[in-house]
Design a protein around this nucleic acid. Structure first.
Length: 851
RNA sequence: GCCCGAGUGGCGGAAUGGUAGACGCAGCGGAUUCAAAAUCCGCCACCGCAAGGUAUGUCGGUUCGAGUCCGACCUCGGGCACCA
């Protein structure tokens, strides 16, 4: 055979790995463990390029670490609950369970040919009753530890379909199917007390040194610690029970610039006014049509309604401020009520301008005079400003100093108290949907809300459900909810809400350490395998999934399911970029976009069309997603060229943290390169003696490549590792070194390539007589003696511009380098006799002559 | 709107504050071939005949020296708590 045939070869090596049990993770106390995990996939139907990229990256790390002698755990599972399964059932009939397990079977079959070094014996899906039953058991533990509670919270309500909508299902304020204007509606829901951990989750970020700085920053901002003043206004003309209005402000130093107070439409006072005042009721109803997302709220036009109620300024009983209901005040942050200082907050400024309220400045720029404002003056808190209506601290101070002084001054006068607030809200986990983990509690008329007994777990989802009408099938199931109260035994009703799918993904990493255990985790296994040493996933999970997992690990530790060391479950995090693709859409009858698959679109110079000629709108290249249909099927590449080509391709070129735009070109070239390497290896077996005088040069290049590829893999710069391997391929190809040197060099190259293209590497390894499997061979080490160069080429700059270069011995003293540089013909020419003002010699780097 | 990123040849990208464009793709030229495929060799930022000049989204700044550091802006992307 003189050609590389992946179709045969890849299957053969996969069998060989299986036979050797190469990827079965074993608790081996004699070896250091390494747990590498990629964020597990949602079984959407077929694998896409993002999966190939993600899992190949993890595989490179897993195979590399294994070669370095670690006992590696590299598992795979399925994040299998969620809305799309129910949507599919509604659209196409069938059952979410069949749809989900069918997708899993397809995707598993697609992933296996990739040759990933996964321990498939640990596979599970979060919709397996064995998994969600353990989750229910932990929910009950959390209840016992006071980590769970119920309260009212708002949801998007579709008044036509009579169902709760996810934010994604609300488009321009309307339900995606019914088109009805969506309302905010309150429901009693289950919450995890993540906000109790706000301070700890924030502080512990400092210890996550192997997380990207940007993720830590995003999480810190999300948690949003602030120091401020909470105080109460006395009200005038408010309904009974609302004599005082509690507000929270992070800028108490601007209290003398207050011009109004504002409350959230969801504030109890707004609700009290709503019943007796048609205008308030109408305005509040309008506010409730904005939807529940913070984005929608912030983007909506800022509006308010004067309630007629007034509050007294705490420092001046004669000074009255109007109380507005304003659509931009969040009930979930602070007290749901604020005072507005338009001079120093742009949003308040716009509001005051709109409703003709006064705009008294509190401070001006240092050295400036008080003047009418055309926009809010909002300096950095660290900037010094001159207070013209201050009441605390010196006249000139920074915002920060003023805030602290104001809190002290207010506390001294008995106006409120300094409090630390967090933006982080408790985690609402109730979903009014079928395809999720049932919340294991029972509602009893006598006993109230009671946890299910653990021996009755799992509370299984019923199979006989229908999706022909909107709403929660569990709610309308004739018998499922009927049960006996675990406490008194009387007839009672099950909770019909299921859990947020983020719960499922908040502990799967721990379950992988003992996936069949009869308890959520097994002490010996979590102790050996935790933490995840390297976690890899999309940047889109930077906040929610990762924060929830950090919370969950703490909660599990409290309940005895994780050791203390695992409260930060991910030692190192790598956020890969996304695979993006252009989007294609035609227009539906209602004018809404109808997304089209790339494979159905014919791209033309002027635009794009469907195969039947329908014009297609081409949208920007964005994250591949099922909902936008801008997905490309990697299986085409695998069947045509083999898995190694797909793997090498996604590791080349783009740095892993950067988004990569998928284009069809390039796969062919990748395949050519791999064939070339194989051919070069094959030639080694047939060539003549060669020229031993060239051996050293080839082996030096080999050791340099070992160092560079190792550094590339360690540093998650796979694209650079690949580039260095290309370079070495060229060097190898041109070298006429001896047969033995070439054999050694090629064996090493196969090893260095093996994390990326394991099948090809095995083939070359066995062809050249390598011992055993390359997958189990120890990683090569670069010989430092072979990396040393004797001379160095120094560029010479004149006034920062490169004009010449000199070759000097590596360790030449700077004084001698200076002499040689100044004696250089090109340098003399460019200096043209001008005196040298300064001469900078950076040893081994550069010479700069300043004239 | 708020928080976080990214922007370098025709394209993907490389570059501890030290020769901008490694490596790859595409393109061009050549060898081989009856011809092709495959393979191999060479060229390849822009302007300029050249000397040389201009170039890392834009505008400023720090520095002997800036793609890299600082400030402002522009564009694109991610997240915004019920998409996963």
């Amino acid at each position: 055979m003189s050609r590389y045939d992946p179709a045969i070869t890849e299957a053969r090596w996969q069998k060989a790995w299986d036979a050797a049990g190469a990827f079965t993770a074993r608790r081996d106390e004699t070896r250091q463990k390494y747990y590498v995990l990629e964020m597990f996939p949602y079984p959407s139907g077929r694998i896409h390029m993002g999966h190939v990229r993600n899992y190949t990256m993890g595989d490179v790390v897993a195979r590399y670490k294994s070669s370095c002698g670690f006992s590696v755990l590299h598992p795979m599972g399925w994040d299998a609950f969620g809305m799309p399964a129910e949507n599919a059932a509604m659209e196409r009939g069938g059952h979410p369970k069949e749809w989900t397990y069918g997708n899993i079977a397809v995707m598993r079959d697609q992933m296996k040919p990739l040759g990933l070094s996964i321990d498939w014996s640990r596979e599970f899906a979060t919709c397996d009753p064995e998994y969600y039953g353990q989750q229910q058991s932990m929910f009950i533990d959390f209840m016992e530890k006071g980590l769970v509670y119920r309260k009212n919270a708002v949801v998007n309500w579709d008044p036509i379909d009579m169902t709760v909508l996810a934010n994604e299902q609300v488009i321009d304020g309307k339900g995606w199917r019914s088109g009805a204007v969506v309302e905010r509606r309150e429901l009693t829901q289950w919450f995890f007390r993540i906000s109790d951990f706000a301070g700890e989750l924030l502080e512990a970020l400092d210890g996550l040194n192997d997380w990207p700085e940007k993720v830590r920053l995003m999480q810190a901002n999300w948690i949003g610690k602030s120091r401020g003043l909470q105080f109460a206004f006395d009200t005038l003309g408010a309904p009974e029970g609302f004599d005082r209005l509690e507000v929270y402000t992070t800028r108490p130093d601007t209290l003398m610039g207050a011009s109004f107070a504002a409350i959230s439409p969801d504030h109890p006072l707004a609700k009290a006014l709503e019943t007796g005042d048609a205008k308030v009721a109408e305005f509040v109803a309008e506010c409730r049509r904005i939807g529940t997302s913070e984005e929608a709220l912030e983007k909506a036009e800022k509006k308010g309604l004067d309630t007629g109620i007034r509050v007294r300024h705490p420092f001046d009983p004669e000074w009255e401020l109007p109380v507005y209901i304003a659509n931009f005040i969040l009930m979930d942050y602070g007290t749901g009520a604020i005072f507005g200082c338009p001079a120093h907050d742009q949003r308040d400024f716009d509001f005051a301008t709109k409703y003709s309220l006064p705009i008294p400045p509190v401070f001006v720029a240092e050295g400036a005079e008080e003047a009418a404002l055309t926009e809010a003056f909002v300096p950095m808190k660290s900037e010094r400003v001159r207070f013209v209506r201050g009441f605390a601290g010196g006249q000139v101070q920074t915002g920060e100093e003023a805030v602290n002084a104001a809190i002290e001054a207010c506390e001294a006068r008995g106006v409120g108290r300094g409090v630390t607030n967090y933006r982080l809200r408790d985690w609402g986990i109730s979903r009014q949907r079928y395809w999720g983990c049932p919340i294991p509690v029972v509602h009893c008329a006598d006993c109230g809300v009671v946890a299910e007994k653990k021996e009755n777990l799992p509370v299984r989802l019923p199979d006989d459900v229908t999706f022909d009408k909107p709403g929660n099938p569990l709610d309308r199931h004739p018998t499922w909810a009927a049960t006996a109260c675990p406490s008194c035994g009387k007839p009672a009703r099950r909770e019909t809400d299921t859990m947020d799918t983020f719960v499922d993904s908040s502990w799967y990493y721990a379950r992988f350490t003992s996936p069949r255990a009869a308890t959520p985790t097994d002490a010996a296994d979590v102790d050996y395998w935790m933490n995840v040493d390297q976690y890899i996933g999309g940047i889109e999970h930077a906040i929610l999934h990762l924060l929830y997992s950090r919370f969950f690990a703490r909660a599990m530790q409290i309940c005895g399911h994780l050791p203390e060391k695992a409260i930060e479950p991910f030692n190192a995090l790598f956020t890969q970029g996304m695979v993006t693709h252009e989007t294609y859409a035609t227009r539906g009858a209602d004018g809404r976009p109808v997304w089209q698959l790339p494979e159905d679109v014919v791209r033309e110079d002027a635009g794009a069309r469907l195969k039947d000629g329908t014009p297609v709108e081409v949208g920007p290249s964005i994250k591949m997603s099922k909902s936008k249909k801008n997905v490309v099927d990697p299986m085409d590449i695998i069947t045509r060229y083999g898995a190694d080509t797909a793997r090498w391709f996604v590791m080349s070129d783009s740095p892993p943290e950067r988004d990569v735009e998928w284009t069809a070109s390039g796969a062919d070239a990748t395949h050519k390169h791999l064939s070339r390497v194989w051919r070069l290896a094959h030639e080694v077996t047939t060539r003549g003696a060669g020229n031993p005088a060239q051996d050293e040069a080839l082996l030096k290049a080999m050791h340099k490549t070992i160092a560079e590829v190792t550094a590339g893999i360690e540093g998650f710069a796979f694209n650079k590792a690949v580039a260095k391997l290309y370079e070495f391929t060229n060097t190898f190809s041109k070298s006429d070194a001896s047969a033995e040197a070439k054999r050694v060099a090629m064996l090493t190259m196969a090893q260095l390539m093996s994390p990326m293209v394991p099948h090809l590497a095995e083939d070359i390894w066995s062809m050249l007589g390598g011992a055993g499997l390359v997958a189990q061979a120890p990683w090569p080490k670069a010989d430092p003696a072979m990396l040393v160069e004797d001379t160095v080429t120094l560029p010479i700059q004149i006034n920062g511009k490169r004009r010449a270069e000199i070759v000097v011995p590596k360790d030449m003293p700077p004084a001698e380098v200076e002499k040689i540089a100044l004696a250089d013909d090109a340098v003399i020419k460019f200096l043209a006799g001008q005196p040298v003002k300064k001469l900078i010699v950076v040893p081994g780097r550069i010479v700069n002559v300043v004239v």
